[in-house]
């Protein structure tokens, strides 16, 4: 539980995510997603309750957690005035990767993304979709146990979004747990399991098919709207 004064942003939530699972974390704006995510990534401490990420306690071992997770923020989160390879090197260095390891892996990554020709381009000069793919690749470059994605595909075109999700599947198949928030319901369908938060509580948890059956709705869009309408706290 996380309380700001008397306001309980996140109240009595409890869930577990398996290794290598793609877990969709849904909720209307203001439902408490970001707060929950901040607690899990060590940016914030829970007022009460506990949690474990990669086996580390979020109340006491957040320094360990930081070492074993990746994070991609809602805003674009690479340096625009550094080149593609400078960004990769900087962030890989932060996570303590060795120089030769970085060099080898950078080459592999750029080939996979078909970015070889742009290794020395400033990130600011790339199209948004490319930047997002690059930011995701950088966030899992150090092979974290879990990667947290906070609305990673905002403002990206559908074609690029598909490519982005291919990268996510690829990461999950390598055993990286993916914890993703999104407002696109078609993306929710891609997740292994999803949870929907309303008013700081988890109101639904299960595979997309389970939830559709449980609430007797034809698709995720309807499930979400059905639940979000029950919110009593302000949601914009």
């Amino acid at each position: 539980m996380k309380a700001f004064g008397t306001f309980h942003a996140v109240d009595d939530i409890s869930f577990s995510v398996r290794r290598g699972e793609i877990f969709g974390f849904l909720g209307a704006n203001g439902a408490g997603k970001t707060t929950a995510m901040h607690m899990l990534t060590g940016l914030n401490q829970p007022t009460s309750g506990t949690g474990r990420v990669c086996g580390y306690d979020i109340r006491t071992e957040y320094e360990q957690i930081k070492r074993h997770i990746g994070y991609m923020s809602q805003k674009f989160s690479l340096y625009e005035d550094l080149t593609v390879s400078e960004n990769i090197r900087l962030f890989a260095g932060i996570y303590g990767m060795k120089d030769d390891e970085i060099t080898a892996k950078t080459g592999k990554l750029l080939r996979q993304l078909k970015f070889e020709d742009h290794a020395n381009d400033l990130v600011g000069s790339l199209p948004l979709g490319w930047k997002q793919k690059l930011a995701f690749s950088v966030s899992i470059f150090h092979e974290p146990g879990v990667v947290f994605l906070d609305e990673p595909t905002g403002g990206v075109d559908p074609a690029t979004r598909r490519q982005f999700w291919e990268l996510i599947y690829d990461a999950a198949s390598r055993g990286i747990t993916v914890f993703v928030t999104t407002h696109y319901m078609d993306e929710a369908e891609y997740c292994d399991r999803i949870s929907i938060m309303v008013d700081g509580k988890i109101r639904a948890l299960g595979t997309p098919d389970d939830l559709k059956r449980q609430f007797q709705q034809p698709d995720m869009d309807h499930v979400f709207t059905y639940l979000a309408r029950q919110a009593t706290k302000s949601s914009d």
């Binding site: 060590g42 940016l43 070492r67 923020s73 805003k75 674009f76 962030f91 932060i94």
Partner: peptide, 13 residues
């Protein structure tokens, strides 16, 4: 403003 600070704070630095 650019969101890079958030990423740095989540990292071990």
């Amino acid at each position: 403003e650019q969101g890079t600070m958030e990423v740095l704070l989540v990292s071990p630095v």
